[in-house]
Design a protein around this nucleic acid. Structure first.
Lengths: 348, 348
DNA sequence: CTGTTAGCGCATTCAT
DNA sequence: ATGAATGCGCTAACAG
């Protein structure tokens, strides 16, 4: 039976209805055994609280206990009017990060549910970092913008609360970090192409020049795999027409694109030039974006565990709140083999 | 100068340092002119507060004022273990809604920033709807899952706080609603094809059977446009091979796909059958998803203003908190003409 | 115009 | 094992 009147019930009313004091109600509902309330009393209090639809007032509790159990979420992606910018040689927009943020929120929510976090608090503006001292949250999860995360992080690190950075490996001391293993994922992609017999493998993307940490790591992984196979990686290709020429000349039989969107752009350039994937050239992407199964009839790509990363971030933050030291975590990726890669064969 | 020690400063300390009472500090920082504090005193107080890095404690303020200024966000999409399901005849996964939720969060954040909402509160589990009575939020924004939104909404409508539903038109009385004009968008798509001279236009998707409100509206818009042109809409096509056959037989020269993902699937089926877009058949999608410019070399589609919808939701909720009545809003869409549509011509 | 007083609702002493 | 008293930090009402 729940009170359908929906008027808010106070602890005093529960106490009165149960014939005990407010203190006892508080003790019972705290759930802590240390308080030692008689079993029968506890049962009755719980029943009455349920009947009355009692929900403890969070503001009062937070004021009293000086903590909230709430975790703050800083989504840099949702900063105002992010200009379109060049990523991996491709013009993309805020849409990329919005997609990413959805996965982040899903992961955070799942983990919060699992670990009984009562609420996630999203501050709309990053604003003054002092804002985070308003007592709304006990700790902070920061989904970093690769292009700007570092300055913000160094500010947030000064706060007297634990901070966990997501999606970057470059964090100040004392800040925990959870990132996807971009380098390892890139290695997986390149090794897949090597295993198919390809030796002329190009990296298609913005390369080091883009200045994006993740993309640099992806390129490093690619180079690492080729080096390990005794091959000399060729310089990254940034433009579709250059790629087309290289394939035409037989200099390239397989391509690892920095991102799935980059792979889609590559497919478009190749297709317009009359080249086919995977018949004329094999192609691997990175991210496994929505729709990847429709790129080149099914893009082989590296799954990017964004939601899992966020979920892990919650766990890491809770551990820190429990007294653990700052940690560094790299999440493994997974190769999704589809139809855009094929064994190497001499072109006829 | 800001206090780098980051120890929390209380209102009393600000008051002492400024040589006034705590009440005066409160009045000054409230910003309300009604309190009439002497200009010089106010200036001094503000300066001291800044110097000391004073940030008012939210828990205390909320307890005293009995409100928080915070808006609750219910993202049904991020419920646990959403199973993959059939949407519009296509198997999609939580990835679809994650993408959507990212846009929602971006829109909410932008609007919250603009309208000075201090924080958005995301409850991890939908749980008991009574939970929302915990005093964390003054009102609720509900991003509805088209397949389950209605039951939850009817529960939330009972809460003694304003509720704004996003992404559904079917709301209980007293609940405000903001949705995208799916029907109008579909009309735009169909009218575009009609204007290009097409008369044999198919609807590709799950159709009424899918039970998804939005898709039903999209199909209705399509039928409306065809009827208005004096044409009789043919039954929706749900499967790629059926579509291929219809095109081959010349029964269909243009397709309006329920979603961009559906359009991508159509492209795949058509391409495999040797049919080309737009040479053999024109194609319009809906949603303008990330990567739409790479579908069929650039998919003509209807832009789905998810972020704008969310932003409007914030405004609507704030108005309700200000005393306004519940409202219903439909957001206009926009046709994105790219390269997948071409004028009708007899096939050679 | 400014200060004093009095709680908001709860969790925690410390008595009993 | 339970209850009375206390105060978390702030703002609203009132007095001066």
């Amino acid at each position: 039976m729940c009170n359908t009147a929906a008027m808010k019930v106070r602890i005093k009313e529960v106490a009165a209805a149960a014939g005990v004091s407010a203190a006892t109600v508080s003790k019972v509902l705290s759930g802590r055994a240390a308080y030692a309330v008689q079993a029968e009393t506890a049962r009755r209090v719980r029943q009455v609280a349920l009947d009355l639809g009692y929900v403890p007032d969070v503001a009062a509790r937070n004021l009293r206990t000086r903590q909230t159990g709430q975790l703050g979420v800083v989504l840099e992606a949702v900063e105002p009017s992010e200009p379109d910018r060049l990523l991996g040689g491709l013009t993309t927009s805020g849409a990329v990060r919005r997609t990413f943020d959805g996965a982040i929120m899903a992961g955070l929510s799942d983990a919060a549910r699992e670990w009984q976090v009562p609420a996630l608090v999203v501050y709309p503006g990053v604003g003054q970092f002092q804002t985070y001292l308003d007592g709304r949250v006990d700790g902070l999860l920061v989904s970093c913008n690769p292009l700007r995360g570092h300055y913000l992080l160094s500010e947030l690190a000064k706060l007297p609360m634990p901070v966990v950075a997501l999606w970057t490996e470059a964090v100040p001391p004392g800040v925990s970090m959870v990132d996807v293993d971009h380098q390892g994922g890139a290695r997986l992609a390149a090794e897949h192409l090597l295993a198919l017999g390809h030796t002329r493998i190009a990296f298609y993307g913005g390369g080091q020049a883009s200045g994006v940490e993740h993309f640099q790591r992806r390129e490093m992984g690619y180079r690492q795999a080729l080096n390990a196979a005794g091959l000399t990686p060729r310089p990254a290709i940034h433009q579709g027409d250059v790629l087309v020429e290289a394939v035409r000349r037989g200099e390239v039989s397989a391509v690892f694109a920095e991102t799935d969107l980059g792979a889609a752009a590559a497919v478009q350039a190749l297709t317009r030039a009359g080249l086919r994937v995977p018949d004329d050239v094999s192609l691997v992407g990175f991210d496994d974006i929505l729709g990847a199964e429709y790129i080149a009839g099914g893009l082989t790509t590296v799954y990017h565990p964004a939601a899992e990363m966020a979920a892990r971030g919650v766990r890491v933050l809770l551990d820190r709140l429990g007294g653990a030291a700052a940690t560094r975590t790299l999440l493994p990726t997974r190769l999704m083999v589809r139809r855009s890669t094929a064994p190497f064969k001499i072109r006829g």
